[in-house]
Computed example of a mutant assay.
Amino acid sequence: MKQDSSVTLHPDEHSRQTAEIMQRFNDVFQLHDPSALPRLVAEHCVIENTVPAPDGARHVGREACVQLWSAIATQPGTRFDLEETFVAGERATIRWRYWLADGNSIRGVNLMRVEDGLIVEAMGYVKG
């Protein structure tokens, strides 16, 4: 594919900051250590979770979001394989595979949004 020479892409400060926040967020699940979550999540954060199907549950507020993500991060015998994290400005897409304690896995994606250095929105989707 030929690149249009009139289009120039530059990493911007907003994308860099969002990428740093997503790295710290992903570390919570990689290290099974949710202690960083309260410093990453905005007071008015909203999560639309993947369960129950088909639309998931809605979690509103820092406390509810931290509680949900902490429970996921510390679930015994589970792990997340990060497949890709893509950042553009205040938005990030995290593609992942979640391994359950029984050895089965689920593939999914989180659509994230950051404002003023904190996560304000997370929408999770899984392959059915």
Results as ranks from 00 to 15, higher is better:
Cys45Thr: 08
Glu63Thr: 14
Gly56Met: 11
Val51Asp: 04
His32Lys: 14
Leu40Thr: 06
Glu43Thr: 10
Asp55Tyr: 07
Trp69Leu: 08
Pro34Ala: 11
Leu40Gln: 03
Val60Thr: 15
Cys45Lys: 11
Cys45Ser: 13
Gly61Asn: 13
Ser35Arg: 13
Ala36Cys: 01
Arg62Val: 06
Thr50Val: 14
Arg39Ala: 13
Pro54Cys: 07
His32Cys: 00
Thr74Asp: 06
Pro54Thr: 09
Val46Ile: 15
Ala42Leu: 09
Ser70Lys: 04
Gly56Ser: 09
Thr74Arg: 14
Ser70Met: 06
Ile72Phe: 14
Pro38Met: 07
Gly61His: 11
Glu48Gln: 12
Trp69Glu: 03
Ala53Arg: 14
Ala42Cys: 02
Val46Thr: 13
Val46Lys: 08
Val41Phe: 07
Glu48Ile: 13
Ala64Leu: 05
Leu68Gly: 02
Val51Met: 12
His44Val: 02
Arg58Thr: 14
Pro54Tyr: 06
Val66Tyr: 03
Gly61Pro: 08
Ala71Phe: 01
Ala71Cys: 01
Arg62Lys: 15
Val66Lys: 03
Gln67Ser: 15
Gly56Glu: 07
His32Ile: 01
Ala73Pro: 05
Glu63Lys: 13
Asp33Gly: 00
Gly61Leu: 07
Gly56Val: 09
Pro54Val: 07
Pro38Gln: 09
Ser35Gln: 09
Pro54Asn: 04
Ser35Lys: 11
Ala71Gly: 08
Ser70Tyr: 04
Ala73Met: 09
Pro38Tyr: 06
Val41Gly: 02
Gly56His: 10
Gln67Pro: 00
His32Met: 00
His32Gly: 00
Val41Glu: 04
Pro52Tyr: 13
Pro34Met: 10
Ala57Gly: 14
Arg62Trp: 08
Ala73Glu: 07
Pro54Lys: 08
Asn49Val: 04
Gly61Lys: 13
Glu43Ser: 08
Glu43His: 10
Ala57Arg: 12
Ala71Arg: 09
Val66Thr: 06
Arg62His: 13
Cys45Val: 13
Val60Asn: 08
Ser35Tyr: 00
Val46Arg: 14
Leu40Cys: 03
Arg39Leu: 02
Pro34Thr: 13
Arg62Asn: 10
Val60Cys: 10
His59Leu: 15
Thr50Phe: 12
Asp55Glu: 10
Ile72Cys: 08
Asn49Phe: 01
Pro34Leu: 11
Ser35Ala: 06
Glu48Ser: 02
Glu43Pro: 00
Ser35Glu: 08
Pro34Glu: 10
Ile72Lys: 04
Asp55Val: 06
Ala71Val: 02
Pro52Glu: 10
Ala64Asp: 12
Cys65Tyr: 10
Ala53Asp: 05
Ala57Lys: 14
Leu37Trp: 05
Gly56Lys: 11
Glu48Tyr: 01
Thr50Asp: 05
Gly56Arg: 11
Thr50Pro: 01
Pro54Gln: 04
Cys45Phe: 06
Asp55Ala: 09
Glu43Gly: 00
His59Lys: 13
Leu40Asn: 04
Ala53Val: 07
Ser70Trp: 05
Trp69Val: 02
Leu40Glu: 04
Val66Arg: 05
Glu63Cys: 00
Trp69Pro: 01
Ala64Thr: 05
Ile47Glu: 03
Pro34Cys: 12
Leu68Ala: 07
His44Leu: 00
Val41Trp: 05
Ala71Pro: 00
Ser70Asp: 06
Glu43Tyr: 03
Gly61Tyr: 10
Glu48Met: 08
